[in-house]
Amino acid sequence: MVDAYFTLRSISFRRSKQSPLFQGLNFEVLPNDQIGVIGGNGAGKTSLFHLMMGLLLPQAGDVFAFGQVCRNEKDFVPVRSQVGYLFQNSDDQLFCPTVEEDVSFGPLNLGMSHKEAREITSKTLNELGLSGFEKRITHHLSGGEKKLVALASILAMNPKVLLLDEPTNNLDDEAYKRLTDILKSLNISKVIISHDREFLSDLTEKTYRLEAGQLHLE
């Protein structure tokens, strides 16, 4: 049996003073899984990712990541370097003045030297068709470019799993197609939150619906 990348076991979570968001939620991500997650607004799709990354901690239940049980911030630090989380809003992710600095931020956090970080940055940008973007100002990029640079910034960390939160939101047709092609070519496990059925059926093998605090296979 292969070790699961993520196992969420009977997770219960509520924000203070609100009705529970998750109750007895179970979820598993295996190597090479391509999973879609759909659900209404406020169903807790983004919170699911936050629980997997340790940005939120559940009140009950266990989060196993790469075979280790994770209970606190410290446990999640090594997890984060193996998971690429693409935020819904790329502006949250891009905080450095230039594209190059932003993409090399992750590799530097992994302890790489500046030279190595620079190499992996230009390699990743090349692969995404963004060569020549190194000195561009992140703030002045178009919406589609921001999304691709944000993707480059997480791919530069060589993640085992990608968590993509509504990656196609606000993209024009061309950027949409470019992103779809890139994601298809990546040989990495993916969990994708989206409202776009066509996009999901194109990229994923199974789809879960998040409803009433639980995940149901469609």
């Binding site: 984060r80 949250d92 992710q93 905080f95 600095e101 910034s153 960390m157």
Partner: peptide, 24 residues
């Protein structure tokens, strides 16, 4: 933004990289 930084492995430390990142 801090959350997104943490997701890419950011930790507070007394390194030039950390100070620079906080500056950014």
């Amino acid at each position: 933004m801090l959350r997104a930084m943490k997701c890419r492995g950011f930790r507070y430390s007394t390194s030039w990289h950390c100070w620079k990142s906080i500056g950014h």
